[in-house]
């Protein structure tokens, strides 16, 4: 049986489950947040997992797909208790929840895990460093907090800045804030204070096109994004132009690049994820970052890669293989 850990509104999970259903393959979906929303019970040994009325026979689960789970602050528990609790207690409870969710692999140590909460949070700086060790080209990267330094760097390179941690969408009152990748210009520098919050600054690569590649256990499903022609999307294609969308087309990475990237993913202990690259006008490929779990629909749909079915088949294959292992 396949176990899918995800929040309820994950469209990719819905689609993979459609394919599992079509194969009549047993599958159960759980949002770890239910562990705090409902009466629940876990036993590490013998392994048991009960959430509300749901009893999940973990001994029958041989493959797990880990997707993003709900945050503590999405829970009803938080909603009901936030006024009663001091900030530190909320932070602690949130960490307790994360630790329980991240501990779920302990309940299923013999199962195959497609992504795991253990390797969920990759550090961008760490990843860039390992990428360099794998002989991938990476843009010059800095953490800067003074205007003087930044001005000096700008003399040497064209620059962009982006978040060190995952860029998130912050909901504040009626609006959303997000951290797009932005270019740094002389005007940007003039607007800054002499010192500012430490920020990730990178050499801006003049690009022919961007590449997003979905990686699944050694296989690459790559897509070129022609974001260059359009001013709105030049620096970050996620600033979508909906009237006249960027061209998203299938792309074939050179095999020596694929093997370097495979090496990188192995060193990061990631069996699945989305990799961002740039093909520079200098003809070189630059590695930017990897997102272990993400919405791959934006690659699968335009390129007709059919990743939902491929993932469903992969999970079935692994579930059967690990079940066989468990029997022997």
């Amino acid at each position: 049986m396949i176990l899918i850990l995800s929040k309820p509104d994950d469209a990719s999970v819905e689609k993979v489950m459609d394919w599992l259903r079509q194969c009549d393959y047993p599958c159960v979906r759980l949002d770890p947040i239910d562990l705090i929303e409902q009466a629940s019970f876990c036993s590490l040994y013998p392994e048991k997992l009960e959430v509300g009325q749901k009893v999940i026979d973990v001994t029958q689960v041989h493959a797990v797909w880990y997707r993003r789970m709900s945050n503590f602050t999405d829970s009803k528990y938080f909603e009901h208790n936030k006024k009663k609790l001091v900030k530190q207690a909320i932070a602690q409870l949130s960490q307790e929840y994360n630790a329980i969710a991240e501990g779920l692999p302990a309940l299923l140590p013999q199962a195959y895990w497609l992504n795991t909460p253990l390797n969920d949070n990759v550090n961008k700086l760490q990843v860039l460093s390992i990428a360099r060790q794998c002989k991938l080209q990476v843009p010059a990267t800095f953490i800067v907090s003074t205007r003087v330094r930044l001005a000096k760097l700008l003399k040497e390179f064209a620059l962009i800045y982006k978040s060190v941690y995952n860029s998130i969408f912050m909901k504040v009152d009626q609006g959303f804030y997000t951290m797009y990748t932005q270019e740094i210009t002389q005007e940007t520098i003039q607007r800054l204070d002499t010192t500012f919050y430490p920020s990730l600054v990178q050499q801006k690569i003049e690009k022919l096109y961007e590449i997003r590649s979905f990686y699944l256990e050694g296989q690459f499903y790559s897509m070129a994004i022609f974001s260059q022609q359009d001013k709105q999307t030049q620096v970050d294609f996620r600033q979508y132009n909906r009237q006249n969308p960027n061209r998203f087309v299938p792309y074939q990475l050179p095999s020596n690049l694929e093997s370097k990237l495979t090496q990188l993913m192995q060193q990061l202990h990631l069996n699945c994820g989305s990799i961002d690259l740039i093909k520079g006008i200098d003809g070189q490929f630059y590695f930017l970052e990897v997102n272990p779990i993400g919405q791959y629909g934006m690659t699968s749909n335009p390129c007709n890669y059919n990743l939902d079915q491929i993932i469903a088949q992969h999970l079935i294959k692994q579930d059967l293989a690990y079940e066989k292992k468990a029997i022997h």
Binding site: Q252, L253, N304, D308
Partner: peptide, 16 residues
């Protein structure tokens, strides 16, 4: 040109 494969035109749908 070899870096830009054609779109696979197979139709995929899980529903009977």
């Amino acid at each position: 040109p070899q870096s830009f494969p054609k779109l696979d035109l197979t139709w995929h749908n899980p529903f009977p």
